[in-house]
Simulated assay, not measured.
Amino acid sequence: MSDFGHRDHYVAAVKAKIFSINPSINVVDITHSIENFNIAHGAYILKSVFRDFPQGTVHLVSVNAPSGPEERAVAVKLEEHYFVGIDNGLFSLLSDKAPTAIVELTKDSSYNRVFPEKTTLAAAAVSLASGTNIYNIGTQISSLRTMLNRQVRVSKTQIGGHVIHVDQYGNLVTNISEELFYKQKNNRSFTVHFARETVDFIADSYDSMDHGDCLVLFNSNGFLEIAISQGNASELLGMGFDTPVMINFSEV
């Protein structure tokens, strides 16, 4: 997964390196269309999908990879998956669980600070995918650079969240989880407030409303999502990343 895009040779160069080391490696592209330098976008996409892959999968990641002299190339074992990339904070956003192993990759003479994905990172990913123990490809370290996810505010009568992702269709994904919503709801009535809209029920699907109508539902990852049936909610509602979303509950 990367923010390389598809215009240039970068994706092909990394794959060529992987196949030159081990032609039998199976490579699956998650996406190379992460917004340039957008760590939050990359973290959301990877967090949404990595658990769908078999345990033991190696994820080679390049989003806003810095090229300064203090950069650390790392391999991380988290929830029985492996992640390889530059330590820029993205890996800390993937899970509430702590990694079970972190190593700083050994940089040999082939290391290219401008394009480490093609050299050290690709080689490390192939080694892990081929069964090499993570501690044999680098030096154990105790922690990663950390970043904080957007936090949800919760009171007896309210949940306050934010839009954390706008997908290809203009649907607005929030950081309010289905589990938290029903825990706070506790058989009470509710209203969801965003932009100039108020909604008082959870839809079952995107097509459960007439075309052009606004709706909220819980997506396949279990997070509250705002959509417009057959429309682009982000454009039509004037909402985007970090826009606040409030849920108010009755006092009972």
Rank of each mutant, 00 (worst) to 15 (best):
L94T: 03
F53T: 03
K77E: 15
F50R: 12
H32T: 06
E35P: 04
V103T: 12
A65D: 14
A75Y: 02
F37P: 00
S130I: 01
T57I: 05
E117M: 12
G42N: 10
D52C: 11
A122P: 09
S110T: 13
A73K: 03
V126N: 09
E117C: 05
T57F: 13
T106P: 00
P54D: 01
E79V: 04
Y82I: 00
K97T: 10
D108N: 14
S127Q: 14
T57L: 05
F53R: 09
N112E: 11
E80C: 00
F19R: 15
L93H: 13
L105S: 09
I30N: 08
D108W: 10
I30E: 06
A125D: 03
D87S: 06
R113H: 11
V27M: 10
K47I: 08
A122K: 06
L93Q: 09
K107R: 15
D96P: 10
A98Y: 12
E35Q: 13
N112S: 15
L105H: 10
L121E: 02
K17L: 00
V103N: 11
G42W: 13
F91L: 10
E71C: 05
E79C: 01
G131R: 02
L94V: 05
F83D: 01
F50W: 12
E104D: 10
I18D: 01
E71Q: 11
S127D: 10
V63E: 08
K17I: 00
A13F: 13
V28N: 08
N64G: 01
S130P: 08
G85R: 06
D108H: 07
A101C: 02
G85S: 02
V63M: 09
A101P: 04
Y111D: 08
D87Y: 09
F115I: 10
N88Y: 14
L60H: 08
K17N: 14
P116T: 05
D108E: 11
I25V: 15
D29M: 07
S67Q: 12
Y111K: 04
A73M: 07
E80N: 14
H41C: 04
Y135M: 05
S95W: 12
R72E: 05
D96R: 13
A129Y: 07
K107H: 14
V28G: 03
L90S: 09
D96Y: 09
Y44P: 01
I34E: 11
A123C: 00
L46T: 07
A101N: 13
P116G: 07
S33Y: 15
V58S: 06
A16E: 01
I102R: 06
A13T: 05
L90P: 10
E35A: 12
F115H: 05
G131E: 04
Y82G: 00
R72W: 05
L94A: 01
F37G: 00
K15L: 03
P66T: 03
L78M: 09
A75H: 04
I34S: 09
L105I: 06
D96E: 14
I39G: 11
E35W: 14
I45W: 12
F91T: 04
D87P: 00
Y44H: 15
I30V: 15
Y111T: 07
D52V: 06
T31K: 08
I25R: 13
S109T: 11
V63Q: 08
K47Y: 14
A65C: 06
N64C: 02
S130F: 07
V74Q: 01
L60K: 02
R113T: 11
L46A: 06
F91E: 03
Y111M: 07
L78D: 03
K107I: 06
A122M: 02
A129L: 05
